[in-house]
């Protein structure tokens, strides 16, 4: 199950962060997302380590914690997408697919002429689309 997704701008400013848990652990999840930003920077600045994934938008598994797996995605415009999931065996293809759909939802949201670049995304349509993508991710990985 995906517990948290986030969009982070090029100056590491949060553009959108949403957790999908019943429990009151939003702060913990935000903390995990925050930590992952350093890993993203490390991957990008030391491309040797990441090897074949050089310059690919999908950064793969950033780091595993006890209960979560954190995946990252970095666009050409230096916008980061972070995904926190509790699933322990996640297929790479599923995550890639998730990020692709997430990215296109983001692109549609920022193409709104009333959206101010660099500001938080407040669009309800975007929130709805993201929660749909998150829901369908659960389905495709279990079924």
């Amino acid at each position: 199950m995906i517990v948290c997704v986030a969009v982070v701008g090029h100056q590491n400013n949060p553009l959108y962060i949403q957790s999908f848990t019943e429990a009151d652990d939003a702060l913990k999840l935000h903390h995990i997302v925050h930590c992952s930003l350093d890993v993203v920077d490390e991957r990008v600045n030391n491309p040797k380590k990441s090897g074949p994934t050089l310059n690919e938008t999908f950064l793969g598994l950033l780091y595993p914690t006890e209960n979560y797996k954190v995946y990252g995605y970095l666009t050409n415009t230096k916008v980061k997408f972070i995904l926190v999931t509790t699933d322990l065996d996640v297929r790479d293809a599923d995550v890639r697919n998730f990020f692709r759909r997430f990215h296109s939802a983001y692109v549609d949201a920022v193409s709104n002429p009333f959206h101010v670049p660099g500001k938080k995304i407040t669009s309800r349509t975007f929130a709805e689309r993201v929660s749909n993508i998150v829901k369908s991710f659960g389905l495709s990985s279990t079924g």
Binding site: T75, V107, S111
Partner: peptide, 19 residues
């Protein structure tokens, strides 16, 4: 500027990052 900013977001979607 705004148009270019938004278009570049869309058109760079499916390509690896520029080095």
């Amino acid at each position: 500027y705004q148009v270019g900013h938004q278009l570049s977001e869309r058109y760079t979607m499916d390509r690896p990052r520029f080095s």
